[in-house]
Amino acid sequence: MRNRRQNVITLLLLAPSLVMAILLLAIPLLVVIAYSFAGRDSYGGVVTGFTLESYVELFQPAYLPIFVNSLKIAAMSTAVCVLIGYPIAYFIAFRAGKHSGLLLALLLIPFWIDFMIRMSSWMVLMGRNGTINGALTGAGIIDEPIRMIGTYPAVMVGMLYAFLPTTVLPIYAALSGINRRLLEAADDLGAGPVEAFWRVTFPLSLPGVMAAMLFVFVPAMGVYAIPVLLGGGKSIILGNLIVQLFLDFRNIPLGAAVSVVMLVLSSVIIVFYMRMLRRLEEAHA
């Protein structure tokens, strides 16, 4: 009896978020899936019904480069974020001492500022007459301003800036959970700092690294603003394609189909990844 009452209370407490999840997540998702199977007239109207037209159109050669480009940009962003994020996380976990809390806070503060404003600030920084060029020409390092906006490295800078905190946090969490006595043991057994890192610290931090990679890779494929603002809109990825199909071409079914493919793609990656992660954790246990 008591158990049942507890269940009811739990359910009631969960109800608001359940309703929210159904209204704002499950239903819209189902609507998107339904749209992806709908037909369309030449003026952009949606014709209800069931057709695979949009999926057939999607696998035309024109769209393939966007998928490839998205995967490339996402992979590159992940690599850059982890390579730069790992040392930062390591420093905060092992070397920052009592300042680690402050450093973590500093890492998170930019999140209080709107994403678009942060990206627009990079446009100011990297502009031809921007802060970086101004400093470099002022110091006499370069004669002519360097072109940064509208280039691939500018997109990478944007990605790094956007996803660095989500990379550092899980790696930091994994690193700070490592039992320090293991490192002392490695030292006692004659391992130098480099060997101790590669044979003890790094393997133990891998779950964090893998989580970080997932947190960057999946959202990076769908980022819309960074390729437009910092890349000049020249190299578009899935997020941009979806906007183009929905807003510019008024092709709601095709836009929905791209969204569904992207959803499936990221779900497959997540499931595959979770499995690997679990295997890794079992191996350590």
Binding site: Y43, L247, D248, F249, I252
Partner: peptide, 11 residues
């Protein structure tokens, strides 16, 4: 862009 506006109306 006109298309953005049209997309909103036809939705």
């Amino acid at each position: 862009s006109n298309e953005t506006m049209m997309a909103k109306l036809s939705a």
